[in-house]
């Protein structure tokens, strides 16, 4: 599903954020991306979202090389992704419903279909009764769950999350992680960037650790100590 082939990213200032990173993720696989801040986690996710382009190497999604993707096709590629942002990136001048509906609106779904799908997504994160509220009225954990609902409302094949539990207590973080596992169970490829080691060590899943732009470890949690 996702294949990094000797990928490097050097920013215009000369800073090398990623160096020869190679890995593969199968469809329906879930993995954690760790490393201290500045190790390249965000850059790696940005390459996947096509916010940044690699300076060397190939990035293949579903066998298609993103380097050869025309600029005009980028929006359609992004519609295959679901992204959960660290600061959830919700619009506070819109209701919870409208926030979650955004990915469907840009893809041109009918209003009836949007209503059905948004409610299904809100139901899956346990916030169905909050659809009319503004995100500002919700707690941090609830806001993050609205962000997750928005990321999965269009049934993406790949779910990316950038520090989704950054500001949450362990209890809430565990709930969010459980949510991601449920999406993995239905066949979504899930990649979560986090530095919350204690949380992921409990989960017994594939971990990729970046250190100064290089992939220094790739394995299942209990193999690593």
């Amino acid at each position: 599903m996702i294949r990094f082939d000797n990928l490097s990213k050097r920013y215009t200032g000369g800073f090398e954020a990623l160096r020869n990173v190679s890995f593969e993720m199968d469809s329906g696989e879930m993995a954690f991306l760790t490393g201290h801040s500045g190790a390249g986690k965000s850059t790696l996710l940005k390459l996947l979202m096509l916010i940044e382009r690699p300076t060397a190497g190939n990035l293949l999604i579903n066998g298609k090389n993103l380097n050869r993707l025309a600029k005009s096709r980028i929006p359609f590629y992004r519609r295959q992704l679901g992204v959960v942002f660290q600061n959830h990136q919700l619009l506070f001048d819109r209701s919870v419903f409208e926030n979650v509906a955004l990915p469907l609106q840009v893809s041109g779904y009918s209003p009836g279909e949007i209503g059905r799908r948004v409610r299904a997504a809100l139901d899956s994160v346990g916030l169905l009764d909050r659809e009319k509220q503004s995100p500002i009225e919700l707690s941090g954990g609830e806001q993050q769950r609205v962000g997750i609902a928005r990321a999965v409302v269009h049934k993406p094949k790949i779910l990316l999350a950038d520090e989704p539990t950054g500001n949450l207590d362990p209890q809430l973080s565990a709930e969010i992680m459980a949510l991601f596992r449920r999406f993995q169970d239905v066949g979504v490829t899930v990649l979560v960037a986090t530095h919350d080691i204690s949380l992921i060590n409990k989960m017994n899943m594939r971990i990729m650790r970046l250190n100064q732009g290089e992939l220094e470890l790739d394995g299942v949690a209990h193999d690593i100590d």
Partner: peptide, 16 residues
């Protein structure tokens, strides 16, 4: 601006 960024990240085309 924030709205434009989010719309673009969820796959909104330039025309949209």
């Amino acid at each position: 601006r924030d709205e434009i960024i989010i719309v673009k990240l969820v796959g909104g085309t330039d025309a949209y």
